[in-house]
Simulated assay, not measured.
Amino acid sequence: MSIANLDKPSGAVTVLVTRRVKVGHEAAFEQASSDMTAAASAFPGYLGGQLVHPDEEGSGDEPHLYHVVFAFDNAEHLQGWQQSPTRSLGLAAIAPHIEGQTVRQVSGLGHWFAAPVGPKQNPPPRWKVAVVTWLGICPTVFVLFLLLGPLLAPWPLLPRVMLLTALVVLAMTWLVAPQLTQLLKPWLYPATRSTT
C-alpha cells in the first residue's frame, strides 16, 4: 500500500509500517530500523517513533512480522522525510533483511475535519477541532476503561497504554470522529453569509 493524499497538510500524521523479517535477520533488521528512526528524528516535524516486535511468546500467526509506528506534525513534513535521500539509504539498508511487500498505513486527526464538498469553506478554528476531538476521546476512553480495565489490570503499564491508545485511535478514526463531525457540521462549518 503506498502513502497518498499528503498534498494538503492538516495536522499530525501517524504512519504504521509493517515488514516481514527473514529468519535469522532479526538483529540486523532491528539495528537498521533503529538507524533509520534516528535519521528520521533529525527531520523537521518528527514527533516520535517506535519499533514494535513480534510477540515473544508467539501466537503462531505472524512470528516474524514487525511494525514501525512514527509520526510527523503535518503531512508536508512527512512528505519531506519520505522524499529524502536519507530515507532511501535507510530503506536500502533494511531491504536485505525483509521478505514480501512492505505495508504502510497513514492516519491523522486532520482528515476528520476535511472541509465538506461544495463551495469553498475555511477549515474550522483549532479550538473547535480541539473541542470535537475531546468530545470523542473522553467518552471513548471512559468506555474502554469500563470494558477492559479489570481485564488489563494485571498487565504492565506500558502495554496497557499501548493497547488502549491503539483502540482509541481505531475507534476515533473509523467510528466516533466521522459521526461527531457529521453531527456537528453546522457548528464546525457555519454557512457564510452573502455580503452582496
Rank of each mutant, 00 (worst) to 15 (best):
K8T: 14
A12L: 08
T14Y: 07
L16K: 04
L16G: 05
V17K: 02
R19V: 13
R20I: 14
K22A: 10
G24M: 10
H25L: 08
H25M: 13
Q31Y: 01
Q31M: 03
Q31S: 05
S33R: 03
A39K: 02
A39T: 08
S41W: 02
A42G: 13
F43S: 06
G48Y: 07
Q50L: 10
L51I: 11
L51W: 00
V52D: 02
H53F: 07
E56N: 13
G58Y: 09
S59C: 11
S59Y: 12
G60I: 06
E62K: 14
P63R: 06
V68P: 00
V69H: 04
V69M: 04
F72T: 01
F72I: 03
D73Q: 10
A75P: 01
E76G: 11
H77D: 12
H77I: 12
H77A: 12
L78K: 01
L78R: 00
W81D: 02
Q83N: 15
P85I: 08
P85Y: 05
T86F: 09
R87N: 11
S88M: 15
L91T: 15
L91Q: 15
I94C: 01
H97A: 06
I98C: 10
E99F: 12
G100V: 12
R104I: 14
R104V: 12
S107M: 15
G108E: 06
L109T: 15
G110S: 10
W112T: 04
P116K: 07
P119V: 10
K120N: 13
P123D: 04
P123F: 03
